[in-house]
Structures are given as C-alpha cells and as structure tokens.
Amino acid sequence: MSTTRNAAVLASGTANTAKLFVAALAFTSAYVGFSAYSSASSTPEPATTVTLSAQEVPITEQLPAQAGKVTVSVLADGGAGCVKSYVARSLVVNPDPAHGVAYGWRLARWSPATKSWRTYFVDYDGFASAAQTVEWRPRITRNPGWYRVELAVEGAKNITSDRFQVSC
C-alpha cells in the first residue's frame, strides 16, 4: 500500500470515529435533558402521615375455661405506670376424683440472652373434686418483654399459654 492510501484510510477512520463520538454525545445530552425536563415538570406527591395505635381492652366477660388450654387476659385493675395484672384460666380435670390433685402455675419470661424461657413467678394450689376451673392472677411490674403462663397438673402433661408481650 502506498503512503497516500494509508493516510486516506487513517483519515476516513478518524472521521468515522469522530462522527460516532459526536452522535453518542448528542444522544447522551438529549437523554439527560429529557430526564431533567420530566423531573422538573413533575410535582412531588404530598407526604402522608399515618399514625397507628393500639389499646388494651379489658376483658369484661370470661369465656368458659377449657381443659388442656391456658388462656391469659389483661385485667383493668393494673396500677399506674408499668404495672400490668393478668388472669390465667384453665379447666383441670382430676384423674382420680377420690383423691385431691395438686397443680402449679409458672409465669415464664423469654430471655434473649439465653434464648430460653426463665421462671418469673410460681404459685401452687390444689383441689379435691372431679374437675375445677382454676385461675391465677400474676402481676408484672416494670419488666417489659415476652411472657407465657404454664400450668403443671399432677399426673398430667404441662400446658402452656400463647406468649404475650408486656410493654410500658
């Protein structure tokens, strides 16, 4: 190839490259301009504030207790501040009505440190009949967290309530 021909090929390649660069620059400028125009012409949506609230409603009517289930309800007689009173109820069936039966309540608090339920309060009682609705009224003072109530009946499997959260 001759020097003149090489120079002509080089010049035409450079010209094509320059044309492509100018076209890309024009396209990018048009895109940025259009984006800025559409952003400027759109009005922002007004902010909407949503306020959520929850209220503990005291139980005014007790549901009948069921064997094999512990229900826990908050009582209206809780004190001021972070004092909550609860009532735990269940129906205990005595496997041997000729003799008394002992049972025990346990209020357990979830420990995030040990990832286990830790005993918070306990109470023991008993009765001498075929069946009896039993209830316990634990009170939690200034100790928010997750709790559950367990009922242990002599000669039967322990039953546990659903967990519930105490907050101040």
Rank of each mutant, 00 (worst) to 15 (best):
M1Y: 04
S2I: 05
N6K: 13
A7N: 10
L10T: 11
A11P: 10
S12E: 08
A15H: 08
A15V: 05
A15K: 14
N16Y: 08
N16V: 07
N16K: 15
T17Q: 14
T17L: 15
T17N: 08
A18K: 12
K19F: 07
L20W: 12
L20E: 14
V22D: 14
A26R: 06
F27L: 15
T28E: 10
S29L: 14
S29C: 12
A30D: 07
Y31P: 01
F34G: 06
S35T: 13
A36S: 07
A40S: 12
S41G: 09
P44H: 09
E45R: 13
E45M: 12
E45Q: 15
A47M: 12
A47E: 10
T48S: 10
T49I: 11
V50K: 05
V50I: 13
S53A: 09
S53R: 10
L63E: 09
L63G: 05
A67M: 01
G68Q: 04
V70Q: 03
V70S: 01
T71N: 07
V72L: 01
S73T: 14
V74Y: 05
L75T: 05
A76W: 04
A76K: 07
A76C: 04
A76Y: 03
G79F: 03
A80L: 11
C82N: 07
V83H: 06
Y86E: 05
A88P: 02
R89G: 02
P95Y: 12
D96S: 11
P97L: 08
P97D: 06
H99G: 08
H99A: 15
V101P: 00
A102C: 10
R106L: 11
L107T: 06
R109A: 12
R109Y: 07
W110P: 07
S111D: 14
P112R: 01
A113Q: 11
A113N: 10
T114F: 13
S116D: 11
S116V: 11
W117C: 04
R118E: 15
T119F: 05
D123I: 05
D123M: 14
D125M: 02
G126F: 00
A130E: 10
A131L: 04
Q132H: 07
V134L: 01
V134S: 00
E135A: 02
E135W: 06
E135G: 03
W136D: 04
R137K: 14
P138Y: 04
P138Q: 08
R139F: 00
I140Q: 03
T141H: 07
N143C: 06
N143A: 14
N143T: 11
Y147V: 03
R148A: 00
V149Y: 04
V149E: 00
V153T: 08
V153Q: 02
G155Q: 00
G155K: 00
G155E: 05
K157W: 01
S161N: 03
S161M: 00
D162L: 02
D162C: 00
F164I: 02
F164R: 00
S167P: 03
